[in-house]
Design a protein around this nucleic acid. Structure first.
Length: 420
DNA sequence: AAGCTAGACAACCGCGTTCCG
DNA sequence: TCGGAACGCGGTTGTCTAGCT
């Protein structure tokens, strides 16, 4: 029999949905004192909740830097791609989506994206077509014939080398950015001497080396996290570094495609049709193949100021990209996707102006449904309903509390990193 | 109008990890 | 070094709403 957590075992503690009054209390308290020890916060704030519940409420809903609007197309792409790469590591995926929590991402995946993929005939777990899974199953039973061994091996080789290359590029990234993060000098590749742009060249070069055959699995990305003491592999690469590696390689693939005159824009009408009958609207520019942080930031800033522009390139995204077909698929599905897989900068609309949006997101009309502040779920796709409403925090705090907060902590409601 | 159902999402639970005395 | 508390994370459940019959 497992003993319930001490903080939650008290029968006098409230559970269930939060009331606006409770939200106001915790907001007022955190505004003044920050988020220290969560177990003591409910008591000090006058809440009959356990600390864990308070922390969850704060992290998942009340934090001023959260984006309460519906997920954008770019965010959905990011989620699906990252899920294909690393599986249900929601917190890591959420880190790539400013203003989103792991719970947000997880819920959105479970309610929307998984279903979308399934409707497209793609297994949301393996990101392979159901038909291929069935075919593979048949193969296991000695059934269906496969394409020529030569072509299959070639494809497998390129994928295998890619998985290795991801690690190599990640090391490059690590050595370029952390300088001394890797204790083992053996892993400090020469590429660290290359300028940042050269990483793309290096990555592209890696992708042409088929001499090693390694299966590409999620373990290629997460297997050596070192979590729980299980990291036997000598290269204990941080997952965020791995994500950066994915980014680099996808950039390299995009650059290679561009050099070869290939584009992947709207090249999958079938997939688009499956997603709802039309290509995704190009709600913002995400054309960045920029390789430097400065360029990415500039791109992000640019896109943040435009919602729709006729001149911005169409979204370089195909749902086929999300297929993780292996050897005999032959349908153009590749990993990584050909187009730009920039993991960090695609959400310009959320980042630079994100805090203002998130502050305003859940207040205003429709922001108080279900008796819980901010459960608007209005899903206004253009966010127009949020532009001029008072902030989310303001909506919760009453007049006096608000005044106190602004007087005592003028930066609180403007700096999303205030608490961290 | 009432009942039913599916969708959406907030919140909880349990477990592993990290922190700290 | 050890043990307990705190924290973080992923899976699951609960609750509410909207739409349909």
């Amino acid at each position: 029999m497992v003993r319930p957590p001490a903080c939650c075992g008290n029968a006098n503690l409230r559970r269930g949905l939060w009331t606006p009054e409770e939200d106001a209390k915790i907001l007022a308290y955190v505004s003044k004192h920050g988020t220290g020890n969560w177990t003591s916060i409910p008591k000090k704030a006058g809440l009959r909740r356990c600390g864990k519940s308070c922390r969850l409420r704060w992290n998942n809903y009340l934090r001023p830097d959260l984006n309460h609007e519906s997920f954008t197309q770019q965010e959905e792409e990011m989620i699906v791609r990252l899920h294909a790469a690393i599986g249900s590591r929601w917190s890591i995926i959420a880190q790539q989506l400013p203003g989103r929590t792991d719970n947000d991402v997880k819920n959105h995946w479970n309610t929307k994206l998984r279903k979308k993929l399934s409707e497209m005939g793609i297994d949301p777990v393996t990101h392979k077509p159901f038909s291929q899974i069935l075919a593979d199953y048949g193969n296991i039973n000695g059934g269906l014939s496969r394409p020529s061994a030569a072509s299959a091996a070639a494809t497998r080789s390129s994928i295998g080398s890619l998985s290795r290359d991801l690690k190599n590029v990640a090391h490059l990234f690590v050595s370029n950015n952390n300088n001394n993060n890797h204790p083992d000098k053996h892993h400090q590749h020469n590429y660290s001497s290359l300028p940042p742009q050269s990483s793309i060249t290096a990555a592209a070069h890696f992708m042409e080396q088929p001499e090693e055959i390694l299966p590409i699995t999620t373990e290629c990305f997460v297997g050596n996290k070192g979590e729980g003491g299980g990291g036997e592999e000598e290269e204990s690469m941080d997952l965020m570094d791995q994500l950066q590696a994915i980014k680099l390689v996808t950039e390299a693939a995009a650059a290679a495609a561009a050099a070869g005159g290939e584009t992947n824009y709207y090249n999958d009408d079938e997939g688009m049709a499956a997603m709802g009958g039309s290509p995704f609207p190009s709600s913002s520019s995400s054309s960045s193949t920029c390789s430097t942080a400065a360029a990415a930031a500039a791109e992000m800033k640019k896109s943040a100021t435009t919602t729709t522009t006729a001149t911005t390139p169409p979204l370089s995204f195909s749902w086929r990209d999300f297929l993780l077909e292996d050897d005999d698929a032959g349908g153009g599905a590749q990993f990584p996707p050909e187009n730009d897989g920039d993991l960090n900068v695609n959400n310009g609309e959320l980042s630079s102006s994100g805090e203002q949006q998130s502050l305003a997101a859940a207040a205003g009309e429709g922001g108080m449904s279900r008796g819980v502040i901010g459960c608007s779920n209005s899903g206004s796709a253009d966010g127009g309903g949020y532009a001029n409403v008072s902030s989310f925090v303001e909506a919760i705090l009453n007049e006096d509390e608000r005044r106190d907060v602004f007087l005592d902590f003028p930066n609180l409601l403007q700096d999303p990193t205030y608490y961290h």
